[in-house]
C-alpha cells in the first residue's frame, strides 16, 4: 500500500525534503516505516498520521500521510 511520508528538521538530511510516496506491506506501522528510513526510534519526538498524533505501533492504512519529527520545541 502507498504511504506519503513527510520528514522534518534534521531527519531530512541525506533523505528527502519534499513529501515522498513509498509502498509498504499491508499492516505496516510508523515504527517500521521509520526504521526503513534508517532513523533511530529514540530520536523521534512526534509522529502524526493524517494530522493527528499517532502511536508508533499503530496500523497504517492506504493513502495515510505520516509525518515524523525529531524532538523539537520552541515558543
Amino acid at each position: 500500500m502507498e504511504i506519503t511520508i513527510k520528514l522534518f528538521a534534521y531527519f531530512r538530511d541525506g533523505r528527502f525534503k519534499e513529501a515522498a510516496s513509498r509502498f509498504f506491506d499491508e499492516g505496516t506501522t510508523p515504527r517500521k516505516v521509520i526504521t526503513s528510513l534508517g532513523i533511530d526510534s529514540d530520536d523521534v519526538g512526534v509522529i502524526m498520521v493524517n494530522n493527528r498524533h499517532a502511536d508508533p505501533d499503530s496500523c497504517l492504512q492506504q493513502d495515510d500521510v505520516l509525518a515524523v519529527f525529531p524532538k523539537i520545541g520552541g515558543g
Binding site: 513527510k6 522534518f8 528538521a9 534534521y10 530520536d43 519526538g45 512526534v46 502524526m48 494530522n51 498524533h53 509525518a67 519529527f69 525529531p70 524532538k71 523539537i72 520545541g73 520552541g74 515558543g75
Partner: peptide, 22 residues
C-alpha cells in the same frame, strides 16, 4: 535534544509541526 534543535533551527522549527497539527 530540544535545546540542540533550538540551537540549529531556532524557535521557528515550530512552523511545520504546528501546521501539520492543524
Amino acid at each position: 535534544p530540544i535545546s540542540q534543535a533550538l540551537g540549529q533551527y531556532g524557535t521557528n522549527v515550530l512552523v511545520n509541526i504546528i501546521n501539520e497539527a492543524g
